[in-house]
Design a binder for these strands. Structure first.
Lengths: 160, 160
DNA sequence: GCTTGAAATTTTAGGCTTGAAATAAATACC
DNA sequence: GGTATTTATTTCAAGCCTAAAATTTCAAGC
């Protein structure tokens, strides 16, 4: 039994080291994407994320749906959509029958801009994950599902 | 050859999907750690990161060493160390022979506070990565080394 | 029709982050 | 010794982010 406890202890340290490495890797990739978005396109990751979400829903998303989907605060989305709207990339559309709500949608200009961004984004990721085979990816994907499952359980547990 | 191109195309999409899943998982874990630090200890991740770095270097780190190590800006570290200093967790020590530089060190109080945090942190990670075996971790670790190697190469390439 | 509570959104105060400008001190060169 | 460059750090302006408060509208119950 002493051996088991010792192994558990070692596993805990091993997991911690992996987490730190994982965080470093992901932060590094994210930093490069932010850099590319800024230097090559004059935009930012939060703006890209909002446009990406809206691109998936051509009929638009309510502000609250957007913030839930992106897992950021309502107030945060307000500011980003404000900017994108000023630039003519996003449009706020009134929801018929509910004067409280508004739907944010990409304009044609916004859609075109996003498609350009998305194509480059995919290329960047492809280069950054160079050397990852389909098998590598499948293996990691199933491990990540464990983490995501845990997270979605927690969410529903925290729901009021 | 058409098949090869098609496979490449598919791999690119697969990598993109993995990246999105990886990002979601890591962000979820990070969010929980931030929540725990705030709710259980009244502190934040950036503060924990600074204390963690200083804990590894008992003789202290210069402000610039600290920002390089943590990969954040100089100005950022200034503000965080300011706060930690006000609270008596960190000390700024003059560097003999260079009146420009200062070394930040944990105070005994800071060291004790960090050790408490670090122990909990390890437990949180252990729970969040529940189900990850030593073999899983070893496999992922070698894949991540690919990413990290690429990142360190880029850094040295970007050095002036 | 009023009132009460819930829902959608914006506003606000405060912390984190960056890149760039400013300051001050050390170093190198002549 | 004097000037220019580099180095260490802080300050600053602006964007991002959150949680909480405020605002407006809707919906239910009476």
């Amino acid at each position: 039994m002493a051996e088991t406890a010792a192994k558990q202890e070692a596993l805990s340290k091993t997991r911690l080291r992996l987490w730190l490495k994982l965080l470093k890797s992901v932060n590094g990739i994210e930093a490069e994407i932010r850099r590319n978005l800024r230097d090559q396109h004059g935009t930012t990751l939060p703006r890209f994320d909002v446009m990406s979400a809206l691109a998936r829903f051509p009929d638009g998303l309510k502000m609250s749906e957007l913030s839930t989907f992106l897992k950021v605060s309502n107030g945060n989305v307000t500011g980003i959509v404000d900017k994108l709207t000023e630039e003519g990339l996003v449009l706020r559309v009134a929801v018929p029958g509910d004067r409280r709500a508004q739907v944010a949608r990409l304009t044609p200009k916004g859609k075109a801009a996003f498609e350009e961004l998305a194509a480059n984004h995919e290329t960047w990721i492809d280069e950054l994950l160079e050397g990852w085979s389909a098998d590598d990816i499948a293996a990691l994907s199933t491990r990540l599902d464990l983490v995501l499952k845990r997270q979605s359980q927690e969410e529903s547990g925290n729901a009021k």
